[in-house]
Amino acid sequence: MVTRVSYKTMRKLKNALFVSVLSVMTSLAVLPLLSLLWSIGFHGIAALISLSDAPLSRGVASAVLVNAFAQSLVTTASSSAIAVFLGVAAAIYSSQYAGLRVGRAIRFTVDILSGVPSILAGMVLFALLSGVSSLVAGVLALVLCMLPVVVRTADQVLVAVPVAYIEGSLALGASRIQTIFATVLPIAHKSLVTALLFVVARMAGEAAPLLIILDGGTASKGSLGFQPLPLRLYSDLTHGGSFPHQIAYVEALILLVTIMTIYGLARWVGRPDRW
Protein backbone atom coordinates (compact mmCIF):
# COMPACT_ATOMS: atom_id res chain seq x y z
CA MET A 1 0.00 0.00 0.00
CA VAL A 2 2.73 2.36 1.00
CA THR A 3 4.79 1.67 -2.09
CA ARG A 4 1.76 2.13 -4.31
CA VAL A 5 1.00 5.56 -2.91
CA SER A 6 4.57 6.70 -3.24
CA TYR A 7 4.70 5.42 -6.80
CA LYS A 8 1.60 7.42 -7.64
CA THR A 9 3.07 10.51 -6.00
CA MET A 10 6.26 10.03 -7.91
CA ARG A 11 4.38 9.89 -11.18
CA LYS A 12 2.52 13.06 -10.28
CA LEU A 13 5.74 14.78 -9.29
CA LYS A 14 7.35 13.69 -12.53
CA ASN A 15 4.43 15.13 -14.43
CA ALA A 16 4.59 18.38 -12.52
CA LEU A 17 8.29 18.64 -13.25
CA PHE A 18 7.59 17.93 -16.91
CA VAL A 19 4.99 20.67 -17.16
CA SER A 20 7.15 23.20 -15.37
CA VAL A 21 10.21 22.44 -17.52
CA LEU A 22 8.08 22.86 -20.63
CA SER A 23 6.73 26.17 -19.38
CA VAL A 24 10.20 27.46 -18.59
CA MET A 25 11.50 26.39 -22.01
CA THR A 26 8.56 28.03 -23.75
CA SER A 27 9.20 31.30 -21.95
CA LEU A 28 12.85 31.02 -22.95
CA ALA A 29 11.72 30.65 -26.56
CA VAL A 30 9.71 33.85 -26.43
CA LEU A 31 12.28 35.83 -24.46
CA PRO A 32 14.61 36.69 -27.40
CA LEU A 33 11.75 38.16 -29.42
CA LEU A 34 10.60 40.34 -26.53
CA SER A 35 14.17 41.44 -25.92
CA LEU A 36 14.61 42.21 -29.62
CA LEU A 37 11.38 44.16 -29.93
CA TRP A 38 12.12 46.05 -26.73
CA SER A 39 15.72 46.96 -27.53
CA ILE A 40 15.04 48.00 -31.10
CA GLY A 41 11.82 49.78 -30.24
CA PHE A 42 13.38 51.64 -27.34
CA HIS A 43 16.61 52.66 -29.04
CA GLY A 44 14.85 53.34 -32.33
CA ILE A 45 12.38 55.77 -30.82
CA ALA A 46 15.06 57.39 -28.65
CA ALA A 47 17.26 57.88 -31.71
CA LEU A 48 14.32 59.22 -33.68
CA ILE A 49 13.66 61.84 -31.00
CA SER A 50 17.28 62.90 -30.66
CA LEU A 51 17.74 63.09 -34.43
CA SER A 52 14.68 65.23 -34.89
CA ASP A 53 15.81 67.60 -32.13
CA ALA A 54 18.83 68.78 -34.05
CA PRO A 55 17.71 70.43 -37.30
CA LEU A 56 20.97 69.72 -39.15
CA SER A 57 21.05 66.00 -38.47
CA ARG A 58 17.33 65.83 -39.08
CA GLY A 59 17.77 66.99 -42.64
CA VAL A 60 20.57 64.54 -43.42
CA ALA A 61 18.89 61.69 -41.61
CA SER A 62 15.55 62.11 -43.33
CA ALA A 63 17.26 62.35 -46.72
CA VAL A 64 19.14 59.13 -46.04
CA LEU A 65 16.07 57.35 -44.73
CA VAL A 66 13.70 58.44 -47.48
CA ASN A 67 16.28 57.52 -50.08
CA ALA A 68 16.93 54.07 -48.63
CA PHE A 69 13.25 53.36 -48.15
CA ALA A 70 12.37 54.40 -51.69
CA GLN A 71 15.15 52.25 -53.13
CA SER A 72 14.01 49.34 -51.03
CA LEU A 73 10.52 49.81 -52.37
CA VAL A 74 11.74 49.82 -55.96
CA THR A 75 14.00 46.77 -55.64
CA THR A 76 11.49 44.71 -53.65
CA ALA A 77 8.57 45.61 -55.90
CA SER A 78 10.37 44.92 -59.15
CA SER A 79 12.00 41.69 -58.03
CA SER A 80 8.73 40.49 -56.51
CA ALA A 81 6.87 41.27 -59.72
CA ILE A 82 9.31 39.25 -61.83
CA ALA A 83 9.58 36.36 -59.37
CA VAL A 84 5.84 36.13 -58.79
CA PHE A 85 5.03 36.20 -62.49
CA LEU A 86 7.57 33.54 -63.43
CA GLY A 87 7.14 31.51 -60.29
CA VAL A 88 3.36 31.31 -60.33
CA ALA A 89 3.44 30.37 -64.01
CA ALA A 90 5.87 27.57 -63.24
CA ALA A 91 3.72 26.47 -60.31
CA ILE A 92 0.63 26.36 -62.52
CA TYR A 93 2.55 24.07 -64.83
CA SER A 94 3.80 21.78 -62.08
CA SER A 95 0.40 21.57 -60.38
CA GLN A 96 -1.93 21.44 -63.39
CA TYR A 97 -0.05 20.14 -66.40
CA ALA A 98 2.90 18.09 -65.25
CA GLY A 99 2.42 14.37 -64.82
CA LEU A 100 3.27 12.59 -61.63
CA ARG A 101 6.91 12.00 -62.42
CA VAL A 102 7.67 15.36 -64.01
CA GLY A 103 5.82 17.12 -61.20
CA ARG A 104 7.84 15.28 -58.63
CA ALA A 105 11.09 16.14 -60.41
CA ILE A 106 10.16 19.85 -60.57
CA ARG A 107 9.16 19.86 -56.92
CA PHE A 108 12.37 18.16 -55.86
CA THR A 109 14.57 20.59 -57.80
CA VAL A 110 12.72 23.65 -56.60
CA ASP A 111 12.78 22.37 -53.04
CA ILE A 112 16.53 21.92 -53.09
CA LEU A 113 17.02 25.33 -54.72
CA SER A 114 14.90 27.04 -52.08
CA GLY A 115 17.31 25.85 -49.42
CA VAL A 116 20.30 27.55 -51.01
CA PRO A 117 21.72 30.38 -48.86
CA SER A 118 20.71 33.78 -50.16
CA ILE A 119 24.24 35.13 -50.17
CA LEU A 120 25.14 32.74 -53.00
CA ALA A 121 22.59 34.46 -55.25
CA GLY A 122 24.50 37.67 -54.71
CA MET A 123 27.78 35.96 -55.61
CA VAL A 124 26.37 34.49 -58.80
CA LEU A 125 25.11 37.84 -60.08
CA PHE A 126 28.25 39.59 -58.89
CA ALA A 127 30.20 37.24 -61.14
CA LEU A 128 27.83 37.54 -64.08
CA LEU A 129 26.83 41.20 -64.06
CA SER A 130 29.24 43.06 -61.83
CA GLY A 131 30.30 45.55 -64.47
CA VAL A 132 26.92 46.10 -66.07
CA SER A 133 24.53 47.64 -63.60
CA SER A 134 24.39 47.09 -59.89
CA LEU A 135 20.69 47.93 -59.80
CA VAL A 136 19.82 45.26 -62.36
CA ALA A 137 22.17 42.77 -60.72
CA GLY A 138 20.68 43.46 -57.29
CA VAL A 139 17.13 43.03 -58.49
CA LEU A 140 18.03 39.83 -60.33
CA ALA A 141 19.82 38.48 -57.26
CA LEU A 142 16.64 38.97 -55.27
CA VAL A 143 14.69 37.26 -58.05
CA LEU A 144 17.11 34.35 -57.91
CA CYS A 145 16.50 34.04 -54.16
CA MET A 146 12.75 34.35 -54.38
CA LEU A 147 11.97 32.26 -57.42
CA PRO A 148 12.28 28.74 -55.96
CA VAL A 149 10.43 29.78 -52.81
CA VAL A 150 7.61 31.32 -54.86
CA VAL A 151 7.29 28.21 -57.03
CA ARG A 152 7.26 25.93 -54.01
CA THR A 153 4.66 27.84 -52.02
CA ALA A 154 2.44 28.55 -55.04
CA ASP A 155 2.61 24.90 -56.06
CA GLN A 156 1.53 23.78 -52.60
CA VAL A 157 -1.42 26.16 -52.65
CA LEU A 158 -2.50 25.16 -56.16
CA VAL A 159 -2.17 21.43 -55.50
CA ALA A 160 -4.52 21.87 -52.55
CA VAL A 161 -7.39 22.89 -54.84
CA PRO A 162 -9.81 19.95 -54.75
CA VAL A 163 -9.62 17.87 -57.91
CA ALA A 164 -13.41 17.59 -58.00
CA TYR A 165 -13.71 21.26 -59.00
CA ILE A 166 -11.19 20.85 -61.80
CA GLU A 167 -12.86 17.69 -63.06
CA GLY A 168 -16.26 19.37 -62.85
CA SER A 169 -15.04 22.31 -64.86
CA LEU A 170 -13.50 20.08 -67.53
CA ALA A 171 -16.63 17.92 -67.63
CA LEU A 172 -18.73 21.01 -68.36
CA GLY A 173 -16.66 21.55 -71.45
CA ALA A 174 -14.26 24.21 -70.24
CA SER A 175 -10.79 24.17 -71.73
CA ARG A 176 -7.76 23.83 -69.50
CA ILE A 177 -7.05 27.56 -69.71
CA GLN A 178 -10.64 28.34 -68.75
CA THR A 179 -10.41 25.85 -65.91
CA ILE A 180 -7.25 27.44 -64.58
CA PHE A 181 -8.51 31.02 -64.79
CA ALA A 182 -12.13 30.43 -63.83
CA THR A 183 -11.82 27.61 -61.30
CA VAL A 184 -8.35 26.93 -59.95
CA LEU A 185 -7.07 30.47 -59.45
CA PRO A 186 -10.33 31.90 -57.99
CA ILE A 187 -10.50 29.07 -55.47
CA ALA A 188 -6.84 29.44 -54.53
CA HIS A 189 -6.40 33.18 -54.86
CA LYS A 190 -6.68 34.06 -51.19
CA SER A 191 -4.22 31.43 -50.01
CA LEU A 192 -1.98 32.29 -52.93
CA VAL A 193 -1.86 35.99 -52.07
CA THR A 194 -1.19 35.16 -48.42
CA ALA A 195 1.61 32.75 -49.23
CA LEU A 196 3.19 35.18 -51.69
CA LEU A 197 3.02 38.06 -49.21
CA PHE A 198 4.89 35.91 -46.71
CA VAL A 199 7.62 35.40 -49.27
CA VAL A 200 7.74 39.12 -50.05
CA ALA A 201 7.94 39.94 -46.34
CA ARG A 202 10.97 37.73 -46.05
CA MET A 203 12.66 39.12 -49.13
CA ALA A 204 12.02 42.77 -48.28
CA GLY A 205 14.49 42.52 -45.42
CA GLU A 206 17.07 40.45 -47.24
CA ALA A 207 20.49 42.07 -47.20
CA ALA A 208 22.86 39.22 -47.99
CA PRO A 209 22.47 39.02 -51.79
CA LEU A 210 22.49 42.80 -52.15
CA LEU A 211 25.48 43.44 -50.00
CA ILE A 212 27.88 41.64 -52.29
CA ILE A 213 26.63 43.44 -55.37
CA LEU A 214 25.79 46.91 -54.17
CA ASP A 215 28.13 47.56 -51.28
CA GLY A 216 31.23 47.48 -53.42
CA GLY A 217 33.31 48.65 -50.49
CA THR A 218 32.64 52.22 -51.55
CA ALA A 219 29.57 53.03 -49.49
CA SER A 220 30.48 55.97 -47.35
CA LYS A 221 28.53 57.17 -44.39
CA GLY A 222 26.49 60.13 -45.53
CA SER A 223 26.39 59.33 -49.20
CA LEU A 224 23.20 58.61 -51.06
CA GLY A 225 24.46 55.80 -53.24
CA PHE A 226 22.27 52.94 -54.27
CA GLN A 227 21.51 51.32 -50.95
CA PRO A 228 18.15 49.79 -50.14
CA LEU A 229 17.21 49.87 -46.47
CA PRO A 230 18.53 46.46 -45.29
CA LEU A 231 21.84 47.07 -47.00
CA ARG A 232 22.06 50.64 -45.74
CA LEU A 233 21.53 49.28 -42.25
CA TYR A 234 24.22 46.65 -42.69
CA SER A 235 26.79 49.14 -43.87
CA ASP A 236 25.90 51.55 -41.07
CA LEU A 237 26.52 48.69 -38.64
CA THR A 238 29.85 47.68 -40.12
CA HIS A 239 31.34 51.11 -40.85
CA GLY A 240 30.66 52.44 -37.33
CA GLY A 241 30.66 56.02 -36.13
CA SER A 242 28.45 58.13 -33.95
CA PHE A 243 25.99 59.49 -36.48
CA PRO A 244 25.30 56.28 -38.40
CA HIS A 245 25.05 54.51 -35.10
CA GLN A 246 21.98 56.53 -34.20
CA ILE A 247 20.51 56.32 -37.64
CA ALA A 248 21.00 52.54 -37.60
CA TYR A 249 18.50 52.26 -34.77
CA VAL A 250 15.97 54.24 -36.74
CA GLU A 251 16.61 52.13 -39.84
CA ALA A 252 16.22 48.92 -37.87
CA LEU A 253 12.95 50.21 -36.44
CA ILE A 254 11.61 51.22 -39.86
CA LEU A 255 12.63 47.89 -41.36
CA LEU A 256 11.03 45.96 -38.52
CA VAL A 257 7.79 47.92 -38.75
CA THR A 258 7.67 47.54 -42.54
CA ILE A 259 8.21 43.78 -42.43
CA MET A 260 5.66 43.36 -39.66
CA THR A 261 3.17 45.39 -41.68
CA ILE A 262 3.57 43.12 -44.71
CA TYR A 263 3.35 40.12 -42.42
CA GLY A 264 0.20 41.47 -40.77
CA LEU A 265 -1.28 42.17 -44.19
CA ALA A 266 -0.61 38.58 -45.18
CA ARG A 267 -2.27 37.30 -42.03
CA TRP A 268 -5.21 39.62 -42.65
CA VAL A 269 -5.67 38.48 -46.24
CA GLY A 270 -5.39 34.87 -45.16
CA ARG A 271 -7.68 35.17 -42.16
CA PRO A 272 -9.84 32.10 -41.88
CA ASP A 273 -13.54 32.52 -42.61
CA ARG A 274 -14.93 29.83 -44.85
CA TRP A 275 -13.29 27.32 -47.18
Binding site: S35, L36, A204, G205, E206, A207, L255, M260, Y263
Partner: peptide, 24 residues
Amino acid sequence: VISLLLEILAVIPSVVYGVWALLV
Protein backbone atom coordinates in the same frame (compact mmCIF):
# COMPACT_ATOMS: atom_id res chain seq x y z
CA VAL B 1 -0.13 34.06 -28.77
CA ILE B 2 3.15 32.17 -28.43
CA SER B 3 2.94 30.63 -31.87
CA LEU B 4 2.21 34.07 -33.32
CA LEU B 5 5.32 35.43 -31.57
CA LEU B 6 7.41 32.58 -32.96
CA GLU B 7 6.12 33.25 -36.45
CA ILE B 8 7.14 36.87 -36.08
CA LEU B 9 10.57 35.67 -34.98
CA ALA B 10 10.81 33.88 -38.31
CA VAL B 11 10.05 36.92 -40.50
CA ILE B 12 12.45 39.31 -38.80
CA PRO B 13 15.27 40.06 -41.27
CA SER B 14 18.75 38.90 -40.38
CA VAL B 15 20.13 42.46 -40.37
CA VAL B 16 17.69 43.34 -37.63
CA TYR B 17 18.91 40.30 -35.72
CA GLY B 18 22.35 41.77 -36.26
CA VAL B 19 21.33 45.02 -34.56
CA TRP B 20 19.91 43.05 -31.67
CA ALA B 21 23.07 40.97 -31.47
CA LEU B 22 25.21 44.10 -31.28
CA LEU B 23 22.93 45.77 -28.76
CA VAL B 24 22.09 42.92 -26.42
